[in-house]
């Protein structure tokens, strides 16, 4: 039985920035470090975590049946076939949203805390009830954002709500970073985003086509393609969560050769 379980909310405000992909990959990475990890799909309206983990055909019961006491927790938990330290608690029916209250989420998470080192909550997009329910059950949070104005703006709203609800620490993951566009100053820089949101950076994830390939297969990148750029980033984030001091990737060094040298020269500050 885990005594000091970390319950981490993975949220973003805006949809489509990579919450579920981060949850799946972080879950796999932590499990690979030998930590018993539960991922909880709190997106009851539009659930997808099962699909990204390739577990969609193995769901029998969901959080709904657990709450209604129609089954035990361990009957609803779906253990990952290739990574036995990882379990998914699937989201229930969208109709749950009609009656689900923050206390219900707390009840589920309290049950999970009894047997896991980490509970990662995949939060729905938006700042409405679904988000508030998920937040009520969380201790700390990871805010995922992209270097785009709309994603950063929505992240700011979410950070405001996390701060007023005393969730801490709140850390930032900057997803879908394109080093080349950053070098050309056609994308918000890492410093731009961290300055504006004033959060410590837990990590950045490079844009990587392999993410789509892995989604197609239902096998998170960190499971098989550990050498892909994004997979390395996810693994680093998991290690930093565990307190390891892993230096951040410098996007400027990700592109090499004459082109990259020229771009670096172009962004040298003159005055």
């Amino acid at each position: 039985m885990a005594t000091d379980t970390r319950v981490i909310l993975i949220c973003s405000g805006k949809g489509g920035v990579g919450k579920t992909t981060l949850t799946a990959n972080l879950g796999i990475s932590l499990a690979r470090q030998g930590l018993s990890t539960a991922v909880l799909d709190a997106d009851f309206g539009l659930r997808n975590l099962d699909l990204l983990l390739g577990l969609e055909n193995r769901i029998v019961y969901t959080a709904q049946e657990v709450l209604e006491e129609e089954c035990r927790l361990d009957q609803a938990l779906v253990k990952h076939k290739k990574e036995s330290n990882l379990s998914l608690l699937p989201a229930g029916n969208p109709r749950m949203l009609d009656w689900l209250k923050p206390d219900d989420m707390k009840r589920i998470v309290d049950m999970l805390k009894e047997q896991f080192d980490y509970v990662l909550i995949d939060c729905p997009a938006g700042v409405e009830d679904g988000f508030k329910n998920a937040m009520a059950a969380s201790q700390e949070a990871i805010v995922v954002t992209n270097p785009e104005v709309s994603a950063v703006r929505d992240a700011d709203r979410v950070i405001g709500l996390l701060n007023t609800n005393a969730i801490k620490p709140v850390q930032l993951v900057l997803n879908r970073v394109r080093p080349r566009m950053m070098a050309n100053q056609e994308m918000l820089s890492i410093a731009d985003v961290t300055d504006i949101l004033a959060l410590p950076l837990l990590g950045l994830v490079l844009e990587d086509e392999q993410v789509i390939v892995s989604t197609n297969r239902g096998e998170p990148l960190t499971l098989n393609s550990v050498n892909s750029p994004a997979a390395k980033c996810y693994l680093n984030i998991a290690k930093r969560l565990q307190g390891e001091d892993i230096p951040l990737i410098n996007p400027a060094e990700e592109s090499s050769g004459f082109g990259a040298k020229f771009r670096r020269l172009m962004q040298t500050k003159i005055f």
Partner: peptide, 25 residues
């Protein structure tokens, strides 16, 4: 001001969009 900004100014091109994004945000 970076070298790129200077060249953009000389060529009367639009400045790189990251700074616009930052200001608007």
């Amino acid at each position: 001001m970076t070298l790129r900004d200077i060249i953009n100014k000389l060529l009367r091109r639009q400045p790189a969009s990251a700074s616009t994004a930052r200001e608007r945000l």
